[in-house]
Write a protein that binds this DNA or RNA. Structure first.
Lengths: 214, 214
DNA sequence: TCCAATGCTATTGTATACAAATTGCTCCGG
DNA sequence: CCGGAGCAATTTGTATACAATAGCATTGGA
């Protein structure tokens, strides 16, 4: 995508996710253009994207507001993500290349090391975790699925979830990743799907425990 | 949504679906703007939408082409639709209002009548079928799900599927809709989900039979 | 004092002009 | 005849100006 609209997208997304633009607050194209240092045109493109990903919503007549996700919305997001990412894992199991399996193995080695450190290295965990899931989605080779999941995997949510994991839970994530690799190596779609379902749903419950229903 | 960009969206979508803009052919913003009688700005907005719905794809560097779905893509579309719409049915089962159930019942009465006519009224079948599924998705009350399904339910695909149904198959659709209504009335999410899964997957196989793998 | 209507302001939608980038072609050299 | 470099033309990206529309406030009247 183009440079200015990409920067605008990242900038505005950052504003929303950091809380600088709180849920429910109004956004105007011009103000955002000023903040991003670009004109309204790329801002509009960025906003269309954010709208399709439900970060922002349009009011009765086209005024923009930061989306306000409630607990139920988040639960539904996790449901959908579990369903779709498990499906991605199943597809990946029959399509993934040996090289990608090796990459997953390497990735999980690093992730496990980050967990096993004296002080668990959460930043590395998050990075490797994201990379792991991305490799799986790529291996699933379904552009539609990738598009849908992109709108569903909110890194801040992942972050908050991981922040609440204790070492045992982080280790369990590493173990589940390892089991996924085994399932891929065995080309067992049903196994991969089941492990991924559990993996995501467990993350949901960790998240819910960390962020109780308001 | 705005007027001009809406018209552009509908116009361009029509070009693609009618085959006037064949799969793989290049599109330029300016040419489309001429065709639609608007400037490039609303055309660009329309193209973003069409791109997110995978009607058009961007080449290595931002040039636009009409998407070329192969048999595998279509199969994956049906898979995803079956999964998501079954999930929608499950959600709807526990959320749908008595009024909406009544509306579904009425809808299915009309659909069954269209099927039972001396010459099956396929146009009415298609219209009522679409309305039926829309009521279910609305009852599911998940904006994310609705967004995703919107990008997945291609009316032309539905049309080609229905065109290949004989009377018995059309009647079976009506019957399945009836069973879905029963599941909703019973508030049985698992039942609704199972029936919807079968309903969509059967449509897929009817479609595949009509349009064999090239 | 409350309601309504009207004018003003703020915000979004569209058009156009211009800049950047990419493609493809032509021309020159080997 | 083939290949590469550079230039021209096409196409996309961005900015800005203008138009339309919705919201809001103020003022006038009952």
């Amino acid at each position: 995508m183009s440079k200015a609209s990409d920067r605008a997208y990242a900038e505005i997304r950052g504003l929303i996710l950091s809380g600088d633009a709180p849920p429910g607050s109004a956004l105007t194209e011009e103000a955002l253009a000023d903040i991003c240092g670009v004109s309204r045109t790329p801002v509009r493109e960025a906003l269309r994207r954010l709208q399709s990903e439900l970060y922002v919503v349009r009011s009765d007549s086209q005024r923009l507001f930061v989306a306000d996700w409630n607990a139920e919305d988040l639960a539904e997001m996790f449901n959908l993500r579990a369903m779709l990412e498990a499906h991605a894992a199943a597809r990946a199991a029959t399509r993934i290349s040996p090289e990608a399996i090796a990459a997953l193995r390497d990735n999980n080695t690093r992730l496990a090391a980050a967990v096993a450190a004296d002080v668990p290295d959460v930043a590395t965990f998050l990075m490797e975790n994201r990379a792991f899931h991305e490799i799986v989605i790529t291996a699933a080779a379904s552009p539609r699925l990738a598009t849908m999941l992109a709108a569903l995997v909110e890194q801040p949510v992942v972050r908050r979830t991981a922040a609440r994991y204790n070492r045992a839970e982080l280790a369990r994530s590493a173990h589940e990743h390892g089991e996924l690799v085994q399932a891929f190596a065995a080309r067992d779609a049903a196994w991969a799907q089941a492990v991924m379902t559990g993996h995501i749903r467990r993350a949901f419950h960790a998240f819910s425990a960390a962020e109780p229903v308001k």
